[in-house]
Design a protein around this nucleic acid. Structure first.
Length: 816
RNA sequence: GCGGGUAUGCCGGAGCGGUCAAACGGGACAGACUCAAAAUCUGUUGGCUCAGUGCCUACAAAGGUUCGAAUCCUUUUACCCGCACCA
């Protein structure tokens, strides 16, 4: 009687689709619940086990909430712009659209094979002009609000991508996609979004993200990098230069200044005499730029200029240095070698004097960076350095030579990309009018479809039908921007579009978006902590400020599922040969087995390794469930099983609610064992059990539900409620007592070490029924024939007089 | 360097103040069934001891809080992750 799982799966997947049971509307009496898994990049190789895990984690919750009576929005879409599609097009001399759309249909097929309960009527794809039109619209709004701007600046360039990258996409000096490729610095005119305008709000509102993993919040705090300090005006060549420092208490110890080698105004400070030296220095650091930043020694060269310390009026030399970051703070630092180890290293190397201003260390040997009392600081001498930070800042403010400021590490978001397969930036360059935005009514600016892909170069540049256009202002000839936008713009607002995916008048209807948002549970990997998960917060705030939505944060509830590793414990990779293909697993074991197995090994938020014997045994459990229903005798449930069922409902409900699926599954399995050992079970209880497994194994539960003679879908049934009055702890106690007895008997058997046949159990008269009712179980577990006597039974067989040892709840035993 | 996290038995992994020698799964070993194997079922799986009791050593290490700690606090160590010359 082999079951054809795949056939059953297909049957129900079709039935769900036909009945459109997962499609939702805003009009509902029920409470809304928005479950969202991060949309994938549809790669040509199809979905991998990590995707499957991600979707299953979300789907179990979606199905559970739906059964609980929520109006559940569970949509899916595709982040379909990006480099692989373009590279494939170059290779095959085709168009990225074809690659992308093939990949999408393959993804959908696979997602359906997993039995994920998406509302397929809402699917969106980034590369669809109906979608990216709104990317362009947002761009125009950003421009209007002064949040989109173009500037020439040093930008990160990845040779392999053939394009610039945002700061967030540079990891350890390497490209986020090509992890072996050093990012180069190029000076280019590029478009930016002024995310820094929101730096403070993005930082402060992290506190509102109550149900986000701590580490993601920590990463974002770190990335935004808010720090409080003082800006002090130093006079250089008669001009005031603001210098940011967090240590104004050390201002009397400044012995030199260092300006970043990348600072745009560096050459202004270089004197004729020093020009050669500086140029040599710049050349040198350029040639060593491929080295790991950590290994770089601090280096610099004297610019020839001096700065005047506003408090001491001392003249200190200004160096250009390789360790100062151009666009953090003021791009120039006041160097205090006595109390900063970097400054100290630099001073030692270039023989610059060290001036101690905080007591406590030996500044001849090393920088003293701990706390202490001020010295050599005139009227501030003797102050505790923490106090001094305050006092000196106050003094500077009074003299108008400094002020308290807040600084952020966050940089503006560089969104230009020199690639084809992205959202075109809706800008026209006119000789007369300059930079002119495309009119809203002319959106979308579409990517051409009959364009040839021959080389790595963006083909738009040479494609006249695209490039040549008219200026919307003066009507003269204009040239279109050929750069496209970073693909992260697409994912920054897609969760709003799901709520109104077909709207061609507006980006989304406010009412609809406000009905569904914020997302109630957002599920995805942790790798986007400082990219997507910052950008989508930024967009939400921007759209709020446009008056489109009254919402500060896209979600307060973020869940990071763990990584699924190969059976060898390593990350799955083709080269290691440890890749598990979800489709193969579905074919071999069924989608239900894969689903339940994926969430059974460990808590879904922790990493784990695939285990082949594990899925094997899970598959057996599934068959056992089916078998149980095949042989089930419907009748009346014992009060014991009723107690167990109600207790299980309670616990499983809690476990699923908290995404502790692994624990829910343990309960399910143990309840199954209990049910199997019953002689008969009521129809109601048998159905409750099916419902409890349904979010994990939707296909077989639909099938069994139907076999029960039910019409309609179990997926739409209501989740069982538990009845506290049916839960009777006495059953647990009794069970424990029987277990103890079995343990004791087995223990004696082990000690005796001989083969025995019979066990005589002597119990108190009032306990006789309890134990004799379970004699089958005792027999099964000990392999002995069981005889239960009341201690006062005159007929009892008790050659060793053991019966008198019996105590309440602890029977006496004799084995022979 | 900064920040976040983790450390449990052969392995994976629960537990997060008592009911813990520690759920559940995998593996291993033993038994039942079988001509035999697979499947299935049952038991064992820290040590000593014992007709079922009891004792010892245990949840990275060392301290501490507590009547009581795998669970709370401190320090240390190891590992993982993120940022990294951010002034």
């Amino acid at each position: 009687m082999e079951l054809n799982f795949n056939k059953i799966e297909k049957k129900w997947q079709k039935a769900w689709e036909k009945a459109k049971i997962f499609e939702v509307k805003e009009k509902s009496k029920n409470k809304k619940y928005y479950v969202l898994e991060m949309w994938p990049y549809p790669s040509g190789s199809g979905l991998h086990i990590g995707h499957a895990f991600n979707y299953v984690v979300g789907d179990i919750l979606a199905r559970f909430k739906r059964m609980q009576g929520s109006n559940v929005l569970h949509p899916m879409g595709f982040d379909s712009f990006g480099l692989p599609a373009e590279n494939a097009a170059i290779k095959n001399k085709s168009h990225p659209k074809k690659y992308t759309e093939d990949a999408i249909s393959n993804f959908i097929k696979q997602q359906k094979a997993l039995g994920i309960s998406y509302d397929w009527s809402r699917v969106v794809s980034a590369h669809n002009p109906d979608y990216y039109k709104w990317d362009q619209w947002i761009f125009l709004k950003m421009l209007e609000k002064g949040l989109a701007y173009k500037k020439k600046s040093p930008v990160n360039w990845c040779q392999k991508c053939g394009t610039v990258l945002a700061n967030e996409q540079v990891h350890n000096g390497k490209c986020w996609i090509h992890k072996d490729t050093d990012v180069e610095i190029k000076h280019l005119e590029q478009w930016f979004f002024k995310i820094t305008n929101y730096a403070n709000e993005l930082y402060e509102d992290i506190n509102k993200l109550k149900n986000w993993p701590e580490r993601i919040k920590a990463m974002q705090r770190n990335w935004i990098g808010k720090s409080y300090g003082t800006e002090i005006l130093f006079e250089i060549n008669g001009e005031k230069w603001p210098i940011f420092t967090t240590r104004p208490d050390t201002i009397y110890g400044v012995t030199f200044m260092v300006i970043s080698a990348q600072h745009p105004k560096l050459m202004q400070l270089v004197t004729e005499k020093q020009k050669k030296e500086i140029e040599e220095f710049l050349k040198k650091i350029k040639s060593t730029s491929e080295k790991d930043a950590t290994e770089l020694e601090k280096e610099g060269a004297f610019t020839g200029s001096y700065a005047i310390n506003p408090l001491t009026k001392e003249k200190v030399p200004i160096y250009a240095g390789n360790f100062v970051i151009a666009d953090y703070g003021s791009g120039m630092i006041m160097a205090v070698p006595a109390h900063d180890s970097r400054d100290f290293d630099f001073a030692k190397k270039y023989k610059i004097p060290v001036k101690e201003v905080i007591k406590g260390g030996n500044v001849k040997k090393e920088a003293y960076t701990e706390d202490g009392k001020l010295i050599n600081s005139k009227e501030f001498d003797g102050l505790d350095n923490h106090q001094a930070i305050n006092e000196i800042t106050k003094y500077l403010e009074k003299k108008k030579i400094g002020k308290r400021v807040v600084n952020y590490k966050l940089r503006d978001w560089l969104i230009s990309r020199q690639r084809f397969w992205g959202t075109p930036i809706p800008i026209i360059y006119c000789e007369k009018c300059g930079i002119v935005p495309v009119l809203e009514k002319d959106l979308p600016v579409k990517l051409p479809e009959n364009i040839k892909f021959t080389s790595e170069k963006n083909p738009l540049i040479d494609y006249k039908p695209f490039v040549e256009t008219r200026c919307p202002k003066c009507g003269k000839k204009g040239r279109r921007e050929t750069d496209t936008m970073d693909t992260f713009v697409n994912s920054s607002w897609y969760f709003f579009r799901y709520t109104d995916p077909k709207n061609n008048k507006k980006i989304f209807d406010t009412e609809k978006a406000e009905y569904w948002n914020p997302i109630d549970k957002y599920i995805g990997g942790a790798e986007h902590a400082c990219m997507h998960l910052i950008y989508f917060r930024f967009y939400t705030k921007f759209l709020r400020d446009l008056g489109l939505i009254n919402l500060d944060e896209p979600t307060f509830n973020l869940f990071n599922q763990g990584m699924v590793h190969g059976e060898d414990g390593f990350v799955m990779s083709k080269s290691r040969g440890n890749v598990i293909d979800p489709l193969n697993i579905i074919k071999e074991y069924s989608a239900d087995t894969l689903r339940i197995f994926l969430v059974s090994i460990a808590s879904p938020d922790s990493d784990y390794s695939w285990n082949n014997s594990g899925i094997e045994s899970m598959h057996k459990s599934i068959k056992k469930i089916i078998d149980f229903y095949k042989h089930l005798k419907i009748g009346k449930s014992s009060s014991k099983i009723e107690s167990k069922i109600n207790k299980s409902i309670k616990e499983i409900t809690e476990n699923i609610e908290n995404l502790k699926y692994n624990l829910a599954i343990i309960r399910i399995k143990s309840l199954l064992e209990d049910l199997i050992s019953e002689k008969e079970v009521s129809k109601k209880d048998a159905e409750i059990f099916l419902k409890l497994i349904s979010p994990f194994c939707p296909h077989i539960t639909e099938e069994l539900w139907e076999k029960f003679g039910n019409r309609g879908f179990i997926s739409l049934e209501s989740w069982p409620e538990f009845d506290n009055t049916k839960i009777d702890e006495r059953f647990e106690q009794q069970e424990k007592a029987i277990e103890n007895l079995i343990d004791d008997i087995n223990n004696i058997l082990r000690i005796v070490g001989e083969k025995k046949e019979k066990v005589f159990v002597y119990v108190l008269p009032n306990e006789k029924l309890l134990y004799s009712n379970e004699s089958d179980l005792i027999k099964k577990k000990t392999g002995l024939n069981v005889f239960v006597y009341a201690v006062n039974d005159k007929e009892k067989h008790d050659p060793n007089g053991k019966a008198k040892k019996a105590k309440p709840g602890k029977p006496a035993i004799y084995i022979e």
